[in-house]
């Protein structure tokens, strides 16, 4: 009975983990940066970020849109967009969109 209970807990844990979308992910730990887009605009003087977060894969909140990131720094001409993805053991995962521009 205890084995069954342990298996259910582990299965539940693994099936509802908070994993973050990224080109490469780590089950134990993820901390990666990658590109999203580049435009033809030149030069950046401002940086804006927008974040979303998931806890245990059960609750996910936030607005990590390019629009939200650009708005946070008053960017009207976007130069390029990157993102950062972090996650620890499927417990907490964070995705941040980073917009550079002016």
């Amino acid at each position: 009975m205890r084995k069954l209970f342990a298996l259910i807990i582990i299965a539940g844990f693994l099936s509802s983990c908070a994993f973050v979308a990224a080109p490469v992910t780590g089950f134990i730990y993820t901390d990666v940066k990658a590109p999203i887009a580049v435009t033809g605009n030149t030069g950046s003087t401002k940086v804006g970020t927008a974040k979303m977060q998931s806890i245990l894969g059960l609750v996910a909140t936030g607005d990590a849109s390019i629009e939200a990131a650009a708005k946070s720094a008053g960017i009207t001409k976007i130069h390029h967009v990157d993102y950062e993805a972090t996650g620890i053991l499927g417990i907490i995962a964070t995705f941040t969109t980073v917009v550079y521009g002016e």
Binding site: I28, Y29, T86
Partner: peptide
């Protein structure tokens, strides 16, 4: 093991 790995990854961070 999961707790130890989690602690290690947080220290790394």
């Amino acid at each position: 093991i999961l707790i130890l790995l989690g602690t290690w990854s947080m220290q790394l961070n």
